[in-house]
Amino acid sequence: MTQPPDLVLIGCGIVFETIASTWPQLSQGERKLQLIRLDSTDDAANAVNEQLSLLNNTEIEIFAAIDQNALNFARLEIYGQARLLGLKSTTLIHPSAIIAPDSRIGENCWIGAGAIIASGASIGNNTLINTGARIDYGAQIAANCWVGSGASIGQYVKVGQHVVIGSDINLGANITVGRHCSIDMPGAYLTSLAEGTFIDSLFPSAVHIYTSKSANKTMPQTDITAKEASK
């Protein structure tokens, strides 16, 4: 039997610490773990570039673990840099997660404890699904996303790239969430959200990014609050 390659975990934050502390369970004692812990998420790729280039790409796999900072671009910086250097990245699944055999999960994904990925669901590369989240039948989550603890994504929901779905958020079935959205006010959301929509308890009315392109595709919705959306 060949030894599985060692894992190099790079980053900081909740997912980083969770993986580091549950490693014995995750690896079942068979793989060694090497940590590259960052002080901050700023300029992450440059911070680790030298360390990454010293790694031997045949003997290790890497996992980029930075939380949802900068709409997941901070994590993408490391993941992307590792890919450019020819390093192989892996996906980690907590043993208590339930994964349908016909679901699809990309690389550099994390599926946290107790998460459920239903049949026909797909998760793009570099997307983190946190503790107890539920992804229903046929839901599609694109690359570079974050799904918070206890969030649920209804069946056939489509989530674009670089989306942050906070904890305890419920997306109703069949809706579409455009790319670059951040939903961080717990509650139920039953209508689609245009790209570049930010919903946060800090901002009483929804925040939108307008580009001449996006305005063409979807009509931006005004003033959606979680309260209204959950009616």
């Binding site: 930010f198 009483p204 009315s205 925040v207 939108h208 990014i209 307008y210 001449s212």
Partner: peptide
């Protein structure tokens, strides 16, 4: 630039 973030504080 033409990409604009817009919000309203009441």
């Amino acid at each position: 630039d033409s990409e604009v973030l817009f919000t309203t504080y009441k």
